[in-house]
């Protein structure tokens, strides 16, 4: 099976690591420390490597591509981080449907269908939530809205980065369902769920 993502970090003075995520399926990666995880997420989110890093994303070496190719590559990758950035002057539904409305696909009916299927499984009062602005949502609700938006975009590689950070046990149980929901809608896509742990080598559970 080919790799959807190959990343390596070699820093002087710290143990480096190599991460390889196979295409398709769900992979959970426990990265050595929060700094390494932040560097990894930044590299994937920008499709750009810093010093000591090497990244191959969906078969492309990010160092060898131009800005247009990088922009195209970024459209195939989705990152959901704890500090999800929703557009503040749009309500939850407008945030979810924004990419589809801009690109003209998927159709609005498909966006509504995905939202109707996913949202009630993850939050209470989904209809009321859709009408609220991001500032009126709690942390879990913001992450759920960003996740539904990610599902609508349907990237080939979705990286879910520590979305359970700062949540209660019940809320963590809710975000744990993200993987199943992604898998159900994008069977051929790759999902990488990353966490920082106190280990020297990344652990991948596929």
């Amino acid at each position: 099976m080919s790799a959807a993502l190959r990343y390596s970090l070699q820093q002087p003075g710290t143990p480096g690591f190599v991460l390889e995520v196979p295409q398709g399926g769900v992979t959970r990666a426990h990265l050595p420390d929060p700094q390494s995880k932040a560097r990894f997420i930044a590299a994937v989110a920008k499709a750009r490597c810093g010093e000591g890093e090497a990244l191959e994303l969906l078969g492309e070496q990010v160092d060898a591509i131009g800005s247009a190719a990088r922009a195209r590559l970024l459209r195939r990758v989705g990152v959901l981080s704890p500090s999800v950035a929703l557009i503040t002057n749009l309500n939850a539904w407008e945030n979810i449907s924004l990419p589809a409305a801009y690109h003209g696909s998927p159709a609005p009916e498909r966006v509504a269908e995905i939202t109707q299927e996913v949202l009630p499984a993850l939050v209470d009062e989904p209809l009321a939530l859709l009408a609220r602005l991001p500032e009126q949502l709690n942390t879990l609700q913001r992450r759920v809205v960003a996740f539904v938006r990610l599902l609508v975009v349907g990237p080939e590689l979705a990286v879910i980065d520590g979305v359970d950070e700062g949540l209660s046990r019940d809320e963590c149980a809710c975000v744990a369902r993200f993987e199943t929901e992604y898998r159900a809608r994008h069977p051929s896509g790759t999902l990488l769920s990353s966490r920082a742990g106190s280990c020297t080598r990344p652990r991948c559970i596929s």
Binding site: A71, A85, I87
Partner: peptide
Amino acid sequence: AMMRISGQTRALRHLGI
């Protein structure tokens, strides 16, 4: 400026907007 600082512009780029 707030959109830029809070990462909303990065989110838009990721959505291909």
